[in-house]
Design a protein around this nucleic acid. Structure first.
Lengths: 225, 225
DNA sequence: CTGCATCCGCCTCGATACTG
DNA sequence: CAGTATCGAGGCGGATGCAG
């Protein structure tokens, strides 16, 4: 009978947090930013999220117009959840938060989970559009069993799911290493030396890719916090 | 003894939320984005925030390097909390969330609190730099007892605290009306007609200001959700 | 008066079991 | 597969105490 717990502030930020500020909500949004997901997929990729919580969060987000249910193929079951246009507006904010949070990731502990598709968001967050060169090319990333790439076209970089056509560079690694590189705890060079990363392609393209993602190719960056 | 509740995900977004994702944290950051604040001021501007919660949040943010204590004048008491450079990096994200949340503010209810200085963040969030004209001028806002202004210089708009020199426009209103206008629930025209907003200055400057803030001057916008 | 710490009732969370 | 029901543990909100 007490209704939901809100901040009761007449303010845009407080209203936003009343919608997406509760525990797990933005992580659910992160999953949906990578495309429609079904209930069990969300549960599988968000360990420690209780099924009752997920149901309530989804119901609430649908009610607020951030998420919608879609009937993927045929009627009946096999339904999925998808972000509405309003929900998609969160993309730059989620990416920005992810980038800010990169400075806080530590060593991977035993209990930490990683998912390869999270790297896609990481790449999106790391892109520095102002550093794109006039060279149109594509860099492919193979993280565990997931493949995505960055496409530079007309000086505009874009993250795309799936393999690239004629990539100028192909990076192959595992999800944990990928995040460590993105956080600056590990340089691409160090990762290659230890055999956890493979980079094939034109050396200049590799350097352009690192620059585009704001990575120091060799020397460790010193912004660990 | 159970330690803090974390997401245990090796991911930038989850790490960010482990730092600023808990209840009240981003609202505390919002307050500190407007300059250093003391403990009691934070408590006063954040109703329903328990004093123990505030102490714990501040301690945690200091520990993570997002906030620091400063001894304003003389040693001893009278200390204040201030965002570190890392904390300041949250400014565009908080502003972006505030802008997104503007679509969710409803009618002001009895229990909703408003503070005039929140309007400063709202203005910062609403600024559309791409709409700035080549005309250098300033627009002043007097919201209850707070005064701030927008300065357009060299096609770059900036929100600044305090009164403006030779403002091309002066808007006077109360905090609730200011938020309603920002959320699109009320047009400047409608607010003037009902006597809740006063706009003085060159008519063209008023229109440029509305455009810069993404406001329809007259007809109600229809994006209420 | 400021800057917390302590205590208490309630609500949310997380895990498990169960149902259509 | 897609949730609902239930329950213990802990985070939250409010009141109060207290040292500097």
């Amino acid at each position: 009978m007490a209704g939901k717990r809100t901040y009761n502030q007449y303010c845009g930020l407080a209203s936003a947090l009343d919608v997406v500020g509760e525990r797990w909500t933005l992580l659910i949004v992160r999953e949906l930013l990578m495309g429609p997901r079904r209930y069990v997929d969300l549960l599988a990729d968000l360990p420690a999220l209780g099924t009752n919580l997920l149901a309530e969060r989804l119901r609430f987000l649908v009610e607020r117009g951030v998420v919608e249910q879609v009937d993927l193929h045929g009627t009946g079951s096999r339904l999925a959840y998808r972000l509405t246009p309003v929900g998609q507006e969160l993309r730059p904010l989620v990416a920005g938060l992810a980038r800010w949070g990169m400075g806080f990731v530590g060593e991977k502990s035993e209990s930490d989970t990683v998912r390869p598709h999270w790297g896609f968001l990481a790449v999106e967050a790391m892109l520095r559009p102002e550093r794109a060169t006039a060279i149109d090319e594509r860099y492919e990333f193979r993280v565990d069993d997931h493949v995505y790439h960055v496409e530079v076209s007309d000086r505009v970089p874009r993250a795309v799911k799936g393999p690239a056509v004629e990539p100028a560079m192909v990076a192959t690694t595992d999800a944990a290493t990928f995040v460590q590189i993105g956080s600056g705890r590990l340089t691409p060079l160090a990762a290659m030396v230890t055999g956890r990363l493979s980079l094939v392609g034109e050396p200049d393209a590799v350097l352009r890719c690192c620059d585009l993602l704001g990575l120091e190719a060799g020397v460790p960056s010193a912004h660990a916090r």
